[in-house]
Design a protein around this nucleic acid. Sequence first.
RNA 1: GGGCUCUUAGCUCAGCUGGUUCAGAGCACCUGCCUUACAAGCAGGGGGUCACUGGUUCGAACCCAGUAGGGCCCACCA
Length: 808
Amino acid sequence: MSEIAKTYDPSLAEDKWYSYWMEKGYFHSEPDEREPYTIVIPPPNVTGVLHMGHMLNNTIQDVLIRRARMQGKNACWIPGTDHASIATEAKVVRKLADEGIKKWDLTREQFLEHAWEWTHKHGGIILEQLKKLGASCDWERTRFTMEDDLSEAVIDVFIDLHAKGLVYKGHRMVNWDPKALTAVSDEEVYHKEVNSKLYFVRYAVEGTDHWVTIATTRPETILGDTAICINPNDERFTHLHGKRAIVPMANRSIPIILDEYVEMEFGTGCLKVTPAHDANDYELGKKHNLETIDILNADGTMSEAAGFYVGEDRFIVRKKIAKELEELGNLVKTEDYMNKVGYSERTDAVIEPRLSEQWFVKMSEMAKPALENVVNGNIQFHPPKFVNTYKYWMENVRDWCISRQLWWGQRIPAWYAPDGTYVVAKTAADAVEKFKIQGSSLKAEELKQDEDVVDTWFSSWLWPIAVFDGFKHPDGKDINYYYPTNDLVTAPEILFFWVARMVMAGYEYRGDLPFKNVYLTGIVRDPQGRKMSKSLGNSPDPLDLIKQYGADGVRVGMLLSSPAGNDLLFDVKLCEQGRNFTNKVWNSFRLIKGWEVDHNLLQPEEARIASAWFSSRFSVALAEMNDHYDKFRLSDALMSVYKLVWDDFCSWYLELVKPAYEQPIDPRTLNETIAFLEELLKLLHPFTPFIAEEIWDSLGERTEKDRVIIAQWPQVAPVDAELIEAFDRATTTIMEVRRVRNEKQLPPKAPLQLFVKGNADAGMNPVITKLAFLSDIEPTNETPANAASFVIKGVEYFIPLEGLLDPK
RNA sequence: GGGCUCUUAGCUCAGCUGGUUCAGAGCACCUGCCUUACAAGCAGGGGGUCACUGGUUCGAACCCAGUAGGGCCCACCA
C-alpha cells in the first residue's frame, strides 16, 4: 500500500493517458456498421484562447461523446476553428498598428498575408488547450472555416442561393463610423445616454395657412426630409390627411403620409421622415415609396444634396440650422431631452446610420422548415424554454445581411463590369462567360470583384455539412453516415446567429435537420454574478485551474450545479470540490489495493448482504443516471454518481466490507469489490476520464482492448427493492438511536442494546453487528421492551429506545 | 417598448401528472475528532411563511389572476 500515494496526483495520469488514447486511435472514427453518434464542435475563434465558457461547453460535449463511445456507438466529435472575420481582422489590424502599419497602406493581398501569418502562429493554440481538458475529439478530422474546401463550399452556396433568387443585393442602414470611414457591426457600437435637445419645428401645410409641428433631435436632417408622417388614428390631425407640407429652408413640397408606426403620445405626434438617415425612416420610406435624399458625406459633413452648409460638419450645422430655423420662425421651441446615441467602439465617433448597398439572404422560405421542425419536436432544445424565443424570432425573421466591409473572410463572388452591372460567378473566367451569355464581351481584366467578404456566420451555418465534405461530395460516405449529427452544445446567445441558420442550411442542402438535440449552456459568471470578462479580470486561467486541480477536478467543477440553460456562477471552490472527489475515489482504490487476500476465508455474512445491497443500489443509481443523461441533465447525472461513490460505496459498502485492521479479506468479497469499483469507474469515466483510466489500469492486467474509455456502459440489473428499503430502515434507525442518545446527553460511547427476533439460528446478524459497530451500539440477546424495529431478509431486529434512558 | 423567463435553506439549484421520498440535494456554516483508505477526511448538528396578495380545490411550492423584484433576447422610439 505504501507505494500508492495518499493523495491523487493528476499530473501522473493526464499526459500519459491522453497521448495513449490518441496514439491508439480511440478518438478516431470511420464510418462502419455501428450506429454513429456525432457532435460537431462550435468552432472557437482560430486565434482565441480558452476561456471558462469553452471549458464548460467542451466538458459537456466530451461527457456526451465519451458516454456514447462506451455505449458502443461510433462516436465522432469533429473539432475545428472559425476564422471569425471581425474579431480576427481587428486583432491583425491592432497588431499591425503596433508595428506602425496602417491597414489602408496595405493592399488586400498584403493584408491577407499578415492575417494568414497570424492565423498560423496563433491558430490551433485553443485546440491544444482543449486537449489538456481531455477533449476526445477526432483530431484527424480537424477543420477550419477558411480552409480551401470550406471556403469553396461557402462560395458555391452563395452562387447557388443567388441563382435561386435567395441572395440579392439591397440597401440597408449600416452603422457608419465617419471617422474611420467604415461600416461597423452592431456589436462594435455602444450606446450612451446623452443630454440633448428636442427641437420642435413647424412646417407649412401646402395650400393652407396651417402648420404642422414635428419634434426632432436632429434638425440638420430636415434637409433630407421626404415626408411627414402621422398616425391615421390620431384625431387631432385628420385635417392633414392627403395634404402636403413644405420643408423649411429647402422649400420642397413633401407628402403627409399615414402610418401607425407613429406614436401619438411622443412629441407632437407628427414625425418627419428622413429615409437616408434613420433606419426606421428608411423602412417607412420603402413602405410608402418615398424619395431618399442623402444629405451627408462619408465623413459626416453636409453633401451637395443637402444644398446648405455643404462641407460643414453635421454637429456644427445642427446649431446653425437651429438658429436659422428660429430666425425663419419655424422653430417653435426646444426641450431638454435625454436620449441614447450610438458611438463607435473603435474611434468614439458618433455613429451615423448610413444607407449602403449590401448583400442579403432571403429568409422567409428557409425559415419555414427551420421553425416547423423545432416546434414539432424533431429538433429538441434543452432546456425547452428556448423554443419560445426561437419561435418568436423565426416568425419575425428578417433578411440576413451577409456582406461585411472586411478583407478577412470569403470574398463575395460578384464581378462588376465597368458600367456597374454584375454577375455572380466562382471565378473571373466564369464571370466572363456569364457576361458573354448576357451579350457583353468583357475581358477578365476589365472585371472588378466585389470588395466585401461574407459574414462569418455565412460559413458557420454550413459547418455540420461542410465538415463531412457534404458540398464537395453530396453523396459521400462520411456525409451519408454522420449526417444528421446528434447533439449540438452551444450558448443561447447564438441561437439565432448560428443554430437557426444551421437548421435552415440543413433543410436547404440536405433536406434534413443538422442535429437532433440542442443543449444550451449558460453563461459562466463569477461568484458575484458578473459575466467573466478580460476587462474585469475576473476570469481564471483555465490552464492554471487544470494545473492546480487536475483536468478531472475542473471538469467536475464545471458540471457541478450547472443545469442546461442556467448561468453558472463559477467559483474555484467548485474545482476544489471536484478535486476532493477525485481524491476520494483514489483513496477507495488505495484501500482496496491494500487488502491482503486469504484464500481460506469465507465471505462473512455482512459482506454478503452489503454486496447484494450495493449491487441493487448501483442499478438504482445507474437507472437514475441514464434518465438524467436522456434528459440532458448532466449535473444531476454527475451528482448521482458522486453520491453513489461517496455515500453508498465509500461510506457504507466499504465500511461494512473492510476487514479489521491488518486482517486479510476473503477472495469473494475482494473480487466483488473490485468488480464494483470497475463498474463505478465506467460511470465516472465521462466525467473524470483520467483518474478512471489510471485506476482501471492499476486494477488488473490490461490490454489495448481493455480500457475504460471503451469499456461497455453498465446495464441496469434487477433491483432488490426490499433489501434497499430494509437497509435504509436499518440505517435510519441507527441514526435515530444516535440522535436520541445525543438528545439525552448520554456519553458518546454509551452502550446501547440491540435485539434480534425471529430465526434463532440467525443469532446476531453480522450486518447489524457491523451497523452497531459503526454507530457504537452494543448488541445483546435480551428481550426488548420498547424498541424500534426493522427487518432484513425476513429477520426482525429491535433497538430498544427505552434502554437509551438508562445506559448500563 | 415587444417577446420570453425566473423568484424554494447563507449560496447554487432539484422538486416530473396538485396528495405517504413534500419541504429536498450539493456546497457553506457550527460542534467534536490528525481513528488504522482518505483532514482533499470522519462523526454529529443548526438552518426555509417555497417573493407577496388573493382565487380554484377536500388538499397548492406546483393551477389561475394581480403585485413587487431579477434575468435574457429583439427593437431602440423621432
